[in-house]
Design a protein around this nucleic acid. Structure first.
Length: 686
RNA sequence: GGCGAGGUAGCUCAGUUGGUUAGAGCGCAGGAUUCAUAACCCUGAGGCCGAGAGUUCAAAUCUCUCUCUCGCUACCA
């Protein structure tokens, strides 16, 4: 029986920070379990991953820390790679997008698409930094957010109000390179006209076919994935720029494209392909067997991802693959939801996280324990939550009490009665046969579930083996029977060992270390998933009993929780001081006390208030992005600090003349600056 | 603001095409037991299935409105 071959990818982690448990639970662990299972079950699988090392966020960070992007990327690539290895995620290769091979592959890919007229070149005006002689990527421009007046909004997004911006929206744009005002200059970029692909995408997403050729069953895709894709398609796809002005990344392989690189979202998924090529080179394989239509016709391509990059894997990358022409399309894109931590979102910037590499450093022997917990709470259909208390409970009262304890009691009994020699089974009773046939169905159940990406339930089935075992012992009571029917006890314990054996075999997917240890104790070896015959043989001696899982103490839980409650003090709480300015610069600002005499909510806006302010010299309208923090009643009547001579700006159709000054804490809360003494409206501030 | 996905026992989650008293694990209470990591086994209590309205003989399941959470996105379905 020929089994389908698979190419499985896991989302490339971005190399500007270490991995936390959210990443692991929502992508890498499910993918690893799936792949371990496929390999045991006789499928030919390539499991591909690597670090994503380009993009503006890395260059910005490098600049901030005064080092080269390559240094950042090298550092985190190593940390991530090491923690995957220690955590035993079984990638066939963990590659990187800054490698020479990837540059070559991605350039070729882009060139081929360009030759096939997949892209449209468009000219537009973009900000250019004269001092540094380069066009500025969105994130290299800061300025005042037109929506909330936040002064350090980036060209692509305001981090305070969350608004997505384009650089031309910013008031008073500043280049982060030179600190000067950039100039608009004409430039060219290559766009992917996604709208031209709507028809086949619609059929492909909804029916799983292209030109009526069936490629996959859409029923096996998650609601969230299909829903979001259809939302995009029905909304009308727009052209998206596939190139960026940046000096870090893969240079656009065309003439007259100096200073331009491939958009990181074009570059990264090609990383799956280049990584496969590297792996093929290292292992004497032909990479085309894993990706190309001709050679990999019946192979299934599966992308494990988090829900935040559904559209890239289910729309944009498939468009690129199809446009290129040589490649197969994904058979499924299992997207996982997010894991929360102790009631809050994981956050790298707030350091609200459990870092994988730190966990592994502190508890190097507790790999399977963490895998068990994360699998139990894998965010398959909705966001789920990790707490240390839950971690403790799951390990203590499930892994240790049910699984570990069962294995231990069987071992102890066999050593006690037979000095570790496996006894033979004699006459089987109905109950024995019932138990044996029940455990025989479990590998099949697990495999059905795993093919549907239901890893939580699959792991539950593994645990059921231990439950069946515990119940079997309780029902048969060998410690009583031994007194008057020793022969019967041999049968009972033989069957108990068969249950243990099944448990060990099924554990290979979820708890690889434990499984290996257990199989060694049993003296059993198997390279296939489902064994119809038993592997233990009577007469052999099993290893000495060991405690498989120690209990997690309350102190552990307290210690880990306290690490979260008092995050390490970093100076990253507030941004570093801005560049020095002269006194003349300061005096350019016209600041006065204004009296808020009217306040209304802006319609169709979450964050905007339309204020009427008496400034002593006039009454003016100011649109202020403070509605999240001040309702109209709270701001009305306040004497506030007003920046008077800010260039007027239309915000949602209302012209705003100036802005209110606000203090903002690290949580993003706003507090209006008010005059301590009531001088009325109008006093100048200096 | 728009779109998508969620809101089910104290906790973490299942609930197939609408159909008998809504499920599991953990936690909790009571009982039984001692081979075992105070473990295991049995029994039980606990849910107006986010709120409201509608369709239907029948709705956690379909429709509408509202609300909260997460994600995507932004003068736009």
């Amino acid at each position: 029986m020929e089994k389908k071959a698979y190419t499985v990818t896991a989302a490339l982690p971005y190399a500007n920070g270490p991995l936390h448990l959210g990443h692991v639970a929502g992508v890498y662990l499910p993918a690893d379990i799936f792949v371990r299972f496929l390999k045991l079950n006789g499928h030919d699988v390539a499991f591909i991953c690597g670090s994503d090392e380009h993009g503006a966020a890395i260059t910005l960070r490098a600049k901030k820390e005064g080092i080269k992007p390559q240094e950042i990327v090298d550092k985190y690539h190593q940390i991530i790679k090491d923690s995957f290895e220690t955590f035993q995620i079984s990638f066939d290769i963990f590659h990187r997008t800054s490698s020479a091979l990837h540059h070559e592959v991605a350039s070729e890919f882009f060139k081929k698409l360009h030759d096939k007229d997949t892209f449209k070149e468009e000219r537009s005006l973009q900000y250019y930094d004269n001092d540094y002689e380069q066009f500025l990527a969105d994130r290299y421009i800061t300025g005042t957010c037109p929506k909330c007046q936040y002064e350090n909004a980036y060209g692509d997004q305001c981090e305070k109000c969350g608004a997505d911006l384009s650089p031309n929206d910013l008031i008073n744009p500043i280049s982060t390179l030179s600190g000067k005002t950039p100039q608009l200059k004409e430039t060219a970029h290559w766009y992917l006209p996604m709208n031209e692909h709507e028809d086949w995408l619609r059929e492909w997403i909804q029916k799983g076919s292209i030109d009526e050729e069936v490629l996959h069953d859409p029923k096996t895709w998650k609601n969230q994935v299909i829903g979001q894709c259809m939302s995009w398609i029905n909304g009308g796809l727009r052209a998206r720029a596939m190139t960026r002005d940046l000096d870090w990344g893969i240079p656009v392989p065309l003439p007259n494209a100096e200073g331009k690189v491939l958009y990181v979202w074009l570059d990264a998924p090609i990383g799956y392909i280049s990584a496969t090529q590297q792996w093929a080179l290292d292992n004497g394989k032909n990479w085309k067997d894993y990706w190309c239509k001709e050679e990999a016709k019946d192979r299934k391509l599966v992308h494990f991802i988090g829900k935040d990059n559904i559209v890239f894997h289910a729309i944009i990358f498939p468009i690129l693959l199809k446009a290129h022409g040589d490649f197969i399309l994904p058979e499924n894109v299992p997207a996982y939801e997010f894991l929360n931590l102790e009631g809050d979102k994981f956050s790298t910037s707030r350091n609200w996280a459990v870092w994988l590499h730190e966990y592994l450093e502190n508890y190097p022997t507790k790999v399977d324990e963490l895998k068990y917990v994360l699998t139990s709470i894998a965010p398959e259909n909705k966001d789920s939550e990790f707490t240390w208390l839950d971690f403790q409970t799951r390990i203590n009262s499930e892994l240790a009490d049910i699984y570990g304890n069962f294995v231990n009691r069987v071992n102890v009994l066999i050593h006690k009665y037979y000095e570790g020699v496996i006894p033979s089974a004699h006459e089987l009773r109905t109950y024995d046969q019932k138990v044996l046939s029940e455990i025989a169905t479990i590998p099949g159940k697990i495999s059905d579930l795993l093919y549907q990406y239901k890893i939580r339930e699959a792991q539950q089935e593994m645990m059921n083996l231990a439950r069946i075992g515990n119940k079997y012992l309780a029902d048969e009571e060998p410690w009583k029977v031994i007194k008057n029917d020793p022969l019967r006890v041999e049968t009972i314990l033989n069957i108990a060992l068969q249950i243990t054996e099944k448990l060990a075999l099924c554990s290979r997917v979820f708890l690889p270390n434990t499984a290996q240890l257990l199989l060694e104790i049993l003296g059993v070896n198997s390279t296939t998933w489902d064994n119809t015959t038993q592997l233990i043989s009577s007469g052999n001696t099993i290893g000495t009993p060991t405690i498989l899982f120690e209990k997690i103490t309350d102190e552990w839980v307290e210690q880990e929780k306290s690490k979260l409650i008092t995050p390490p003090i970093t100076n990253a709480k507030y941004p570093v001081m801005k560049e020095l300015i002269s006194f003349e610069d300061f005096t350019k600002m016209d600041l006065r006390i204004g009296h808020v005499i009217a306040a209304d909510k802006m319609e169709n806006a979450d964050k905007l208030l339309v204020l009427k302010v008496d400034t002593g010299i006039d009454e003016r309208t100011i649109v202020s992005g403070i509605a999240k923090h001040y309702d109209t009643a709270a701001i009305l009547g306040k004497k506030v600090v007003v920046l008077m001579n800010l260039a007027p700006r239309k915000i949602r159709g209302v012209e705003s003349h100036g802005m209110l000054l606000m203090a903002e804490n690290s949580e993003g809360e706003l507090s209006a600056l008010v005059s301590e003494k009531d001088f009325g409206a109008g006093p100048m501030i200096s």
